[in-house]
Write a protein that binds this DNA or RNA. Structure first.
Lengths: 132, 132
DNA sequence: CTCCTAAATGCGAATGATTATCATTTACAT
DNA sequence: ATGTAAATGATAATCATTCGCATTTAGGAG
């Protein structure tokens, strides 16, 4: 078995791309990144595989920012901060949703995931504003 | 000053529609509801006013479910459950994000809002599945 | 080794939600 | 009455995402 299984070259590249960044990218961003190594990759392939990874729980989605969906290759529970000005998504590793909270969701159905998100203006954008 | 200010008839109707439902509707849903009373309302007007309300903090958005944005006329902080099967959005009034959590977000920028969301399969969808 | 099949992919068209444009209407102040 | 700025309706445009289909690929059966 080769390290580069040709069969899943693109698929693996997409997952690896997500795993090795913390920008919480869009499909388009992943596509642009991969074009360097895979000049013939198709945007449809990126979308297809992102959907597949999501279904299988290999990645998660952060939500839709400025009209485009953003993905996250880090499936460990963590909290996000979304800057509504520049659209950047940051991890808040300091914070965690208390387990008791999750446990207290009952009777509503089968809970599969939990996501805590803060929105606001990131420091970078605040500085830009002041300078301007 | 009349109770029915003609000037903002549609705008008021849109806001009232959001305030008086708990379905966390899409723009389209609001449009369909209002057609009864306002046969000449335009979908563009609904989108325009929803965007305006959102900017002003008079409503919030729950996020994008199955590709369409969902709104909430209840601006008091509360938690949501989203059924990924049928797309319904439910309020979890029993749960609240502890203030300490919010406070511990610091140094990242200016925090404007906080949203905790659970996703899964609602009871109704679970039952349907079993029956089938 | 060759043939077969299922999965993966590329390409481009189709879809669907949202936004932009522009002419018209409305309310209110002058 | 009239001017002005905002609100609206209708529809075109946009943009992210998905779909359809032909092609390629890998790996197994013979």
């Amino acid at each position: 078995m080769e390290a580069t299984a040709k069969r899943f070259r693109k698929r693996n590249a997409i997952l690896h791309c997500l795993r090795s960044t913390d920008v919480h990218p869009s499909a388009e961003w992943v596509y642009e990144q991969l074009k360097a190594e895979h000049s013939d990759i198709s945007l449809a392939t990126v979308y297809r595989n992102l959907a597949r990874f999501k279904e299988r729980g290999e990645i998660i989605t952060v939500g839709t920012v400025h009209g485009t969906e953003r993905f996250d290759g880090n499936t460990k529970p963590h909290v996000h901060f979304i800057c509504t000005a520049c659209g950047s998504v940051l991890d808040l590793h300091q914070i965690a949703v208390p387990e008791e909270l999750t446990k207290s969701v009952s009777g509503i159905g089968q809970v599969n995931s939990c996501h805590l998100t803060f929105t606001g203006i990131c420091n970078e954008c605040i500085n830009k504003e002041e300078t301007a």
